[in-house]
């Protein structure tokens, strides 16, 4: 669980990169924007199936095939605990990066152009420009995006359920998917409900703290 939340930061880094690229002066921006948006709209269940079950198939999935071609003989993407965790995180990232890209891109486009031009005139390099102007100005949007993502991440379940059912040995389980399987597969209602309650309390505390510490950086205090 903590691991999945931590991957949000990696997703953020990738998403910021992509948003910057999209914001650059390029042709066909609309095309790229639509393409980048698509993964976000697909149903997680279908994603779990088409990537998890089919593309990562041990014997003939195109991804395992590619990895073998690169010389990795045993691409046990979904069967060794740590790798499975990373794989599920990667699939989750595939779905959710577009969401962050869109938020960040909107933020970038709302930035006043004059400031960057002024910096350029004053002789700032591209990197300086990014570190000292774009990034600080984007901080509110970034924090908003990350907080939203963390909130959604705490609910992550469908991809886990459809791809690995929490396996191997519960390595990829999130709290949500664990409780779900407790209900659905084992009909262990009492245990599941107790866990759900504890989880709810933990989430409320966690989110309250998160919002308290971040709200002053966010676009809008109090979400």
């Amino acid at each position: 669980m903590v691991f999945y939340v931590a991957t949000v930061l990696v997703q953020y880094a990738i998403a910021f990169g992509l948003a910057l690229l999209l914001n650059a002066d390029i042709k066909g921006r609309k095309f790229f924007r639509v393409v980048f948006l698509l993964p976000f709209m697909l149903s997680p269940v279908a994603v779990g199936w088409m990537i998890g079950k089919s593309m990562l198939e041990y014997r003939f999935g195109p991804v395992t095939r590619l990895l073998r071609w690169f010389g990795w003989d045993e691409p046990t993407l979904l069967t060794s605990p740590w790798l499975a965790k990373i794989t599920v995180a990667a699939m989750d990232a595939w779905v959710w990066i577009p969401f962050m890209v869109i938020l960040l891109l909107a933020g970038l486009q709302a930035l006043p152009k004059e400031i960057q031009e002024a910096a350029k005139v004053d002789g700032a390099t591209g990197w300086q420009n990014f570190c000292q102007i774009t990034f600080p100005l984007m901080l509110p949007v970034s924090v908003t995006a990350i907080v939203l993502r963390i909130i959604f991440q705490l609910k992550l379940a469908d991809i886990v359920i459809t791809t690995t059912s929490g396996g191997p040995g519960g390595a990829t389980d999130t709290v949500s998917s664990f409780i779900f399987r407790e209900y659905k597969d084992r009909s262990n209602v009492g245990y599941g409900t107790a866990m759900a309650e504890v989880y709810l309390i933990l989430i409320i505390i966690f989110i309250a703290l998160l919002l308290k510490f971040t709200s002053k950086y966010m676009q809008r205090p109090g979400v």
Binding site: A157, S176, I203
Partner: peptide, 16 residues
């Protein structure tokens, strides 16, 4: 904020 806080709630908590 009360309305929005429902977004935070994981559906699994509401399931039972």
């Amino acid at each position: 904020f009360f309305f929005l806080s429902q977004l935070i709630l994981p559906p699994v908590v509401l399931a039972m």
